[in-house]
Write a protein that binds this DNA or RNA. Structure first.
Lengths: 155, 155
DNA sequence: CTCAATGATTGACATTTTCAACGGTTCGTG
DNA sequence: CACGAACCGTTGAAAATGTCAATCATTGAG
């Protein structure tokens, strides 16, 4: 019988070759899940997660973003940014400065300690990224980043 | 003024060119967020979300996965699969069949109605994917999928 | 000056994630 | 065969995230 395949362990690769194996949304979701987990694990030793690392990163490189800009960029609700910044500020890694040009807005600035921690965390983050793409040439690595940028910033 | 043009809206692109602009984990997270939102919006008219669509897809193409295999593949907790399958089963789109080879396990099978709905939902899903990558050649599209597969299935 | 719009904040609520515990079943070992 | 360890699906609860409306201070337009 053609149909009576009875592979007792059908799961391992059968699913991978299913319709979803070519589904970009699914691949993105799964790649994101694994990648995020790896990043969180590596950042944990610095007391950070991917979220707080991102906020710290933007504060640390002098972009002086307002919380609203942070929210849009990270695709978070403004209220989540409040919590994130609260956490970093309590650890004296970033400071809220009211924007002199618009006193409603808070501009985020990293402290010395913040830049310091970020520098170390960034190394961990880079190591993770390289580890994840160890089987890939630098050219392909950059090509992937470029294509993801297209999806991440469609304008 | 030395600082040419006090860009009162510094955020727009400054953040994009920051350290995070090259951060794979961040790009993946943001691309996933946008992509997932688009997919959910498109699937909503079929009463599905990306999650339930994925489950339905795997049930519909005859892989006969167990719930545990589903959980691993979709990177979900087994309890979440229960809820997902409950939802689809209540709508008579899939059925739980106890695996004759292992009566602990449930194997997922799509009903006729399930395959039918999936066929329609799949068109919507494909349209979304093509829309997201409209600015890209089919070769690059496939290259992106290939690279994401590397991240999604590291073995 | 008045008023609509905006940034940050708070608090409430829904959804998702994560975990521990449980009954039913399988399987290896004695 | 009997035992116990490991495993599947299920349940329920706790923690983390996501979403939304309301509020205060401030801005900018008319």
């Amino acid at each position: 019988m053609s149909a009576s395949g009875k592979t007792r362990t059908p799961g391992r690769d059968v699913l991978r070759d299913s319709v979803l194996g070519g589904d970009l949304v699914f691949l993105l979701a799964r790649a994101n899940a694994l990648t995020l987990a790896a990043a969180n694990a590596a950042l944990a030793e610095h007391g950070l997660k991917a979220r707080s690392y991102s906020v710290l990163a933007l504060a640390a490189d002098g972009a002086r973003p307002t919380q609203r800009e942070l929210a849009e960029f990270l695709r978070l609700d403004p209220s989540q940014v409040v919590a994130l910044v609260d956490g970093l500020e309590k650890r004296h890694l970033v400071e809220r400065r009211t924007d002199p040009a618009d006193r409603r807005a808070n501009v985020l600035v990293a402290t010395d300690a913040g830049r310091d921690l970020f520098a170390r965390a960034q190394q961990a983050a880079r190591a993770v990224e390289l580890g994840l793409l160890a089987t890939v040439t630098p050219e392909e690595h950059e090509r992937l980043a470029g294509l993801l940028r297209l999806l991440a910033f469609p304008d």
